[in-house]
Design a protein around this nucleic acid. Sequence first.
DNA 1: ACGTTAATGCAAGCGGTTATCAAATCGGCG
DNA 2: CGCCGATTTGATAACCGCTTGCATTAACGT
Lengths: 145, 145
Amino acid sequence: MRRAARKRTTRQLEEVFKALQGDHTHPFAHEIYRRVHKKLRRISLATVYRNLHNLVEEGKIRTLLLDEQGARFDPETSQHDHFVCVRCGRVVDLFLRQARRIDLSPLAKQGYVVTTHNLTVHGTCQACVARRRTSKPQRPAARKA
Amino acid sequence: MRRAARKRTTRQLEEVFKALQGDHTHPFAHEIYRRVHKKLRRISLATVYRNLHNLVEEGKIRTLLLDEQGARFDPETSQHDHFVCVRCGRVVDLFLRQARRIDLSPLAKQGYVVTTHNLTVHGTCQACVARRRTSKPQRPAARKA
DNA sequence: ACGTTAATGCAAGCGGTTATCAAATCGGCG
DNA sequence: CGCCGATTTGATAACCGCTTGCATTAACGT
């Protein structure tokens, strides 16, 4: 269903946006709800979702679909990539110089119109490597895309 | 929940595997169910999911999480990338020579252990470009990761 | 301030996926 | 080859993340 453009700026929208500012943890909607709920006790999860979508539509934040756990949200809208730790689920921003050099011109020559591209790297983060043989995965190790 | 390794080979498993052989459309589970159901009229969707997971675990097929529509399955297990058409939802295999040159050694130097990486390109496919101004998107245009 | 109408909060609903469990079936063994 | 225990299946309910319908609340142009 097509969503109409936002027309008003509500306290709820502002708080959802603020909850993501300066955040680098790529939280899920329920975590953003948790944060905003501290300020606006009566806000509902549906409103958080609606405002997240509004912000995405306006290009103020981005949606990340990195694993089967659901959508994450990222206030960093510039082109960058992500590393997903398959043990703890942590997501880290990557700014790989080389990755930006991916040559998509063969696609253009075939008639494709490219709008975006995403690179996601899966593996084990430093912290989880360190405790690799001493503990179990933090999450039901995400199957990767 | 941890899944035990498969111990028996059933007709259902074989048909699920065969339904994907030679397929390049990256179907969803329900489409695979539809195909297998023609051969095994009594098979249930749950069995299709179970056997898809078995095959993924054994490395015979791959799971693709490309958009919010759910998991797709791919019999091509060698390293390759994907193009997703945001208008019609079609997924095309990409074998980009340049993409394979992505240098992930900076990650290794920081202590990350890289197991896989996926590049997904979003845009409009040739067919959809051709009819761009004459028709509407085939699907509720997928938000991209 | 007022009124219009968008946005919210709540709860029900939805779609993909997974769990439950009795019944069917696989396959090793006699 | 048929038996029997263990695995897998089929049917269905449950689950989980997310969305939607609707009555109520609140932006904001006037």
